[in-house]
Design a protein around this nucleic acid. Structure first.
Lengths: 347, 347
DNA sequence: TTATTTCCCGGTATCGTTTGCGTAAATTGA
DNA sequence: TCAATTTACGCAAACGATACCGGGAAATAA
């Protein structure tokens, strides 16, 4: 079945005018008489005429749509970010096309090809945790595709970047755990490929150092899928809880790692925070309602999306290729709740 | 800046052929000699040629994209549904354009206009809770736009529908609360405009009746924004807790109502389930980790999205207008957890 | 009256692709 | 050897909208 829209030709035929006259009348050109304009506009309104965006796109060589590549839509951080992106896009007359990588490199490559072949005007990228080869993205850049990366940015690529101060987020979170009396703080991070992982872990390490605590590499581990798969978190937790130097607190560096650590502890009946403290990066809306209420480092997801979208649209609409690239760094927010409560001085 | 893609014309010029020959060679037409095909295909591959989808769209009068209208992306149910939609769309070569209504009628109208004017090939609709006038949707139907509604379907409109058995979901949930000893079960539902509200409430009422319990209309209330705004839930709860016949259990009929009731109880320090039992419709992934773990009626969101997308694409690709419409009804799943635990026989 | 300007509007090319039609050259058949 | 067929390609129109170019008619100026 087909949805037949009225075209400028239909109007021209009905009013016995040429298409160019109709076109100009609708765009309020000064070379069209007042009466003709009136007639055309009235008829167009009556017939509910809308210019065909596809024809416009072909003519203007732009599609007025932007692509968004995230690892997973059904993730609180990304759905909030998309929320922000969508509202900015709407304001500027762009539509948003979504693609997911599911934290997989191959899917990311095909998703990017997909978006590029759908001729979007630009792409917002948050790279997948499984991605270590960025040649694909770089190739898009070289071919002139406007790009902005957010959250999981790629340091050495030339493009605008919007991220949070991951180092500080990791530092403050760790400091908070130390202040509350935890002595063996483990860190479970996303894929080591990601710069956000590197930064958060660096913050964690520096916090330990600055408090005169030793860094034990067995207390640091990574999840290639960013915790998307329960089993990868389970494996790390199982290993850590088995080792001699057991953690008494966990700093979880992604949304899914945080909740999966929590799930692990519930399944294994490990009490939080009495047996183990927990503080995680998370953008869930109801961390305050969890058992126990969860201490989190929260990112301004929606705002990141808004800013990234603004930058992308600015890039798209700028006449010439950019030579300088902005890096916007937003603050994280630390919510101290029960899961990282002060440790009782018992031993 | 602009992303310049290679066109069929560029190939034609480079190889000293006509565009039609190139086009036919790429589509493996029998009227092109083997050698010419080889040359064209090799060159196209070398130059990484991709047909311009916009030109295709203009020619074929189809955009290979579908619109999705939901109330809110950052909602677990909808993000899961979009997940399913996106994967099916991808499989069939469609892209997904998202729009949000934020439970507001005016925004829904403009979002629909937006999608229609972006010339999508079809639209998946889950109506906003604030919508009582469906003339807009009906008009789209009359103009021949392929439509499928899911979750929040509109009964009297002619289109495919994908939903869950809301009546049964409400019935079984209420029966479960009754079985666990609750006597004054209140029901907080979404907007009364929605058929899902009607059905869930009907299930609730029939469950009470079948257990010989009276129906008290003061124990039933509605939230126009489906609980999206905390204050509307707060107002209902405050009213109910103040009245003479206080509820000892709540059946919450949407994701946001459920969590906002929980939040209300936490703020007001009303113990769940000792003071009040709670069971809600929800698709959150971590209801098992909440305090207390939350009993929920869960909908197969991703599957609903998949099925709805399949139906829509089938509708789009069918030659002639449909005369019969499918209504797919999926089962809900009841998870019994601590928030609706058996009531102690104390008074 | 004639030349010049102004006002309105139509013709046509264009964006990238597909496709029906036309046709020269090559091949076939008798 | 000549007509008939096949092969292999080019030309041009079409999808919907825009914009440059150009031109007829009326209005103004000389």
């Amino acid at each position: 079945m087909k949805y037949e829209a009225i075209t400028i030709k239909d109007i021209a035929k009905a009013l016995e005018l040429s298409t160019s006259t109709v076109s100009r009348a609708l765009r309020d050109s000064h070379e069209i008489s007042f009466e003709t304009k009136e007639r055309v506009i009235a008829y167009a309104k009556e017939m509910n005429y809308r210019p065909n965006p596809i024809a416009l796109s072909l003519k203007e060589k732009r599609s007025s749509s932007i692509g968004v590549l995230v690892s997973e839509i059904a993730n609180s951080f990304f759905s909030q970010a998309i929320n922000g992106i969508e509202s900015v896009a709407q304001e500027h007359g762009y539509n948003v096309i979504i693609a997911q990588s599911k934290e997989d490199y191959q899917r990311e490559v095909s998703a990017l090809n997909y978006l590029a072949s759908r001729s979007v005007d630009g792409i917002l990228i948050s790279v997948s945790a499984g991605t270590s080869d960025f040649s694909n993205i770089n190739e898009l850049y070289l071919r002139g595709m406007p790009l902005v990366s957010f959250d999981r940015v790629v340091d050495h690529l030339k493009m605008h970047k919007v991220k949070v101060d991951n180092y500080k987020g990791g530092y403050e979170a760790t400091k908070h755990l130390i202040k509350n009396g935890y002595k063996n703080i483990a860190c479970i991070a996303s894929s080591a490929y990601l710069s956000i992982t590197e930064e958060r872990v660096a913050g964690y390490k520096d916090a330990l150092k600055s408090s005169g605590m030793a860094i034990d590499e067995t207390m640091i581990d990574y999840c290639l899928h960013s915790g998307l798969i329960y089993e990868e978190v389970e494996a790390v937790m199982a290993r850590m809880m088995k080792q001699k130097n057991k953690p008494d607190a966990i700093l979880a560096c992604s949304d899914k790692i945080t909740t999966n650590v929590m799930r692990y502890c519930q399944i294994k009946k490990i009490k939080i925070p009495t047996k183990i403290g927990l503080l995680g990066f998370s953008n869930l809306d109801l961390t305050d309602l969890l058992t126990p209420s969860l201490s989190v480092v929260r990112q301004p997801a929606s705002e990141m999306g808004r800013i990234a979208a603004e930058l992308l649209i600015k890039t798209i609409e700028s006449k010439r290729a950019l030579t300088t690239f902005e890096e916007v760094i937003l603050p994280t927010e630390l919510f101290q709740r029960a899961s990282s409560a002060k440790k009782p001085k018992v031993k």
